[in-house]
Design a binder for these strands. Structure first.
Lengths: 242, 242
DNA sequence: GAATGTATCTCGACG
DNA sequence: CGTCGAGGTACATTC
C-alpha cells in the first residue's frame, strides 16, 4: 500500500465550460469552441467529455500529469479566452491545452478510495473445458497435455487423433489472424521434432474471423468453433442480478 | 416504475453518490458501495467514474440505452438503498443496475452539439501523402492505387517501379514486427497472381523498430522511413498549437 | 521494465 | 448492417 496515494485529497473537479482544446503528442488534435464537461481527477489527469459518445473522452491526458493555468495573451483575450489550462505529461512530452472562454459550472467533490471492480465469470477457461471435452476435436481424440511447452512458448493443447497422430490446438476467444500466425509458428517448430511429426493444427475459437479462417485453411489448419455456453453446460447461468 | 428523468435533449447530468453497481452482459461485474461520479449523457448512456484511473470508467453502459428508476424493495431499503437506477440496452440485453444510497451532488447541464475532434498525423494521412509523393519510393515509380484489395485485405499502396514491376507498400505510423508479417502475407498472396508477380515489398513507417527492420530485410522487404513533417511540408498545412 | 494478450475494447470506414 | 483494421488504444499479466 502506497502512502503517497493516501496523502492526496481524493477529489474530482467538474467544470462545464465553453472551451477549445488542443492536443499535441503522438498526433495532433483540435476541438473547436463548444460547451463541454471537463473532469479533473485527483492524479492530475484530465478528461474532456461531450454529452454523447459514451465511454471515451473527446480528448484527455493520462496520469501522471501536471496541471497549470496560464494567463492568455492580449490576442487570446480579444478572442474571448479568459483562462488557459495546460496539462502536460513529463515522460512523453504530451501536451493538452484547454482554452477556457466561459465557465458555466465548477464544483469539486471528495470521493474517497474506491474498492475497485470485481469481475466474474469472464475468464474463458475454454482451454480447461476443451481439455475436458477433448472429443470435440473429433471421435477418438485423446488429450496429451495442456500448455505443451515448445522452445517458443506453450501450445494450448496437444492431443492425438484416433490414429495416434499429433494435433496441436490453439485456442482463442476471438479467432484473429494473429492467432493463426502463432499456431503456424508452433506447427513449424513441432514438425521438426521427429517424435511429434507430423503435427496437424486446429484453430479453435468462439468466433473465427473470415480472414483468419481463410488463412488457416490455406495453411491446412482446421478451424473449430467453440460454443462456450454449451461446453460450460447450461447449469450455471450468471443470473446473479435477479 | 417511472420512466427516464433523462429524456432531455443534449444534456448531461452529473451525480456524486454513494452507490453500488452491478453489470450483467458479456460478463458480470460488481462495484461495492463507495462514493463515485455518475455521468448520464443525453443518449441514455451512463458512466461510473472514480477519481483516478483516468480515461476508462469503472463501469458503464453504451448508447443507445434506456434509463429508468425503480423503487427499492423493503430489504433494499433496510440495506440503505434510496433509489435504484436501471440502464439497459435493448439490442444486447446488457443491464446496468446502480443502487443509490445517498446523493451528494446532482446537477444537469446543457452542452449543445459538439463539432467533433479534428485529427492530424494518423496512418491515413501518411498513406495520402505517400500516394501523392509516390516518387519517395524511388525515381520513376508510379501509383497504381491505394487500398489495393486482396483476398485477405487491402494493401495500403500498390505502385510500379521504373521498370514496371509491381511494388506493394505497407504503411505504419510505428513499424513493428506485426506490420512486416502483414506485408509478408500480402506479398505471398500477390506473388501467386501471374498478372502481378513478381511483387516487391516496401515497409514504410515514421519509425521502424530494429527487430522489424531485421525481419523485413531478411525477407527482402525494403524499409522506408517517412518524415511526416517534411511530407506534409510539401503539401500545404500549418501547425495549430503554436 | 519490456513484452504479450485481452477488452463489456471503442470507433470509423467500407462493402 | 456486418466486417475489418486502427487506436494518443487502455489495461492486466507475465517474463
Amino acid at each position: 500500500m502506497r502512502l503517497g496515494a493516501l496523502a492526496y485529497a481524493r477529489r474530482v473537479r467538474l467544470v462545464i465550460a465553453r472551451c477549445s482544446v488542443d492536443y499535441a503528442g503522438r498526433l495532433s488534435a483540435h476541438l473547436p469552441l463548444a460547451t463541454r464537461l471537463l473532469m479533473l481527477k485527483a492524479d492530475g489527469s484530465v478528461l474532456v467529455h461531450s454529452d454523447s459518445l459514451s465511454y471515451k473522452p473527446l480528448n484527455w491526458m493520462s496520469p501522471p500529469a501536471t496541471f497549470s493555468t496560464i494567463d492568455p495573451d492580449q490576442e487570446q483575450v480579444d478572442a474571448g479566452v479568459s483562462e488557459i489550462w495546460k496539462v502536460s505529461q513529463a515522460k512523453t512530452a504530451d501536451l493538452l491545452v484547454i482554452s477556457i472562454h466561459e465557465i458555466l459550472h465548477d464544483s469539486a467533490h471528495e470521493l474517497g478510495i474506491d474498492p475497485g471492480l470485481q469481475k466474474d465469470g469472464v475468464e474463458a477457461d475454454l482451454q480447461k473445458l476443451l481439455a475436458a471435452q477433448i472429443e470435440l476435436l473429433g471421435d477418438g481424440h485423446t488429450l496429451v497435455r495442456r500448455e505443451y511447452m515448445t522452445a517458443i512458448g506453450p501450445v494450448d493443447i496437444l492431443a492425438r487423433d484416433a490414429d495416434g497422430a499429433a494435433v496441436a490446438v490453439e485456442i482463442k476467444r476471438r479467432g484473429d489472424i494473429d492467432g493463426v500466425e502463432q499456431l503456424t509458428r508452433y506447427l513449424e517448430l513441432m514438425n521438426r521434432d521427429p517424435h511429434l511429426a507430423p503435427v496437424r493444427g486446429v484453430f479453435a475459437a468462439q468466433e473465427i474471423k473470415p480472414q483468419a479462417r481463410t488463412l488457416a485453411e490455406d495453411r491446412g489448419i482446421r478451424c473449430l468453433l467453440l460454443d462456450y455456453d454449451a461446453m460450460r453446460g447450461l447449469d450455471d447461468s450468471h443470473s446473479r442480478l435477479f
